[in-house]
Amino acid sequence: MNFLTITNVSKSFGGPPVVNDVSLDVARGEFFALLGASGCGKTTLLRMIAGFETPDSGAIRIDGEDMTMVPPHLRPTNMVFQSYAIFPHLNVFDNIAYGLRKLKLPKDALRAKVEAMLATVRLEGLGKRGADQLSGGQRQRVALARALMREPKILLLDEPLGALDKRLREAMQVELRAIQRKVGITFLLVTHDQEEALSLSDRVAVMHQGHILQVADPRSLYERPNCREVADFIGEINFFHATLREIAGASATVNAGLLGILTLPAANLAPGLKPGDHILLAIRPEHVRFADAGVVGEIAAATFLGARSHFHVKIAGRSEPVFVSGGAPPQGPVHLAFSPDRLIGLPTAG
């Protein structure tokens, strides 16, 4: 059974809907990411799950109970805010113990519980620190510890690593994953960083202008995006216009203009495509290689990235360059080749 179920939830703030007919299922214990560009409605959706906003329509259920109208302080969720929202008038210990008041623990038990949590987030010995005496990474841990302390059914994280520099962010990603495994709580993480979403999560939902476009595990999302927006958002990709000619058994034939007539596995086509449809063929830069024969092009720009480099190759009859990722190319004009197995067929719109 699904643990968090969001059914046809919409929300607007007077204008067009910010969250538009979103349905989503998250399993117990899952590390789930909500990925999307800035302003696509991620925070709004998260705030509806936490109870800070009420959906205009639709329902939110957690562990079988309808939560749609339950106020935030009665929900089994806790949130790590984008701004961390550490209480400035309390020290680290009191911040972390804030949500435990109702348990009425004896002093020793409370101390032991908070100390254990401080150890989990590696803040041992910092309990007495004031909120204004913490580094960015430490604040992030305090916010995490404070939320985990209440053992929520779902932990909501709103771009928890967004304020950290790159190194710290990468270190915290590893730690966040380890903490999630240790506590076994369902994590719902909001991010606009696709690498973060792909490297941390069991599954990712890609959000675009208030809609969920695709929900899948990171590998499928990368290898089998279901539409142009997802393919574009997750890593770099080349698109070619083409027409679907026919689907015969396990293979499909397409007319790809300057690439010629190609045959690819029918499984690489997005569902719902029919012969005669105008489609987009997509291929990742690392699946295009320099060869002795094939489409002729010229290298317009190159970025050295260590073992692999990134090239923009101009080819005749196409205005955008083709992105190629690979080793050093031969001198002069180049030939581009790819295996048709790597092509993905996507609808042109929607």
């Binding site: 936490a50 935030p72 302080h73 929202a85 400035p88 008041r101 209440r150």
Partner: peptide, 25 residues
């Protein structure tokens, strides 16, 4: 930061307790 009051609600305190534990101090 209005998130501070929301954080208090998120951590299980109703409006009245949030006022006394966060807003008032």
């Amino acid at each position: 930061d209005k998130n501070l009051e929301e954080a208090s609600a998120d951590l299980g305190e109703d409006g009245w307790m949030t006022f006394w534990r966060v807003t008032f101090p």
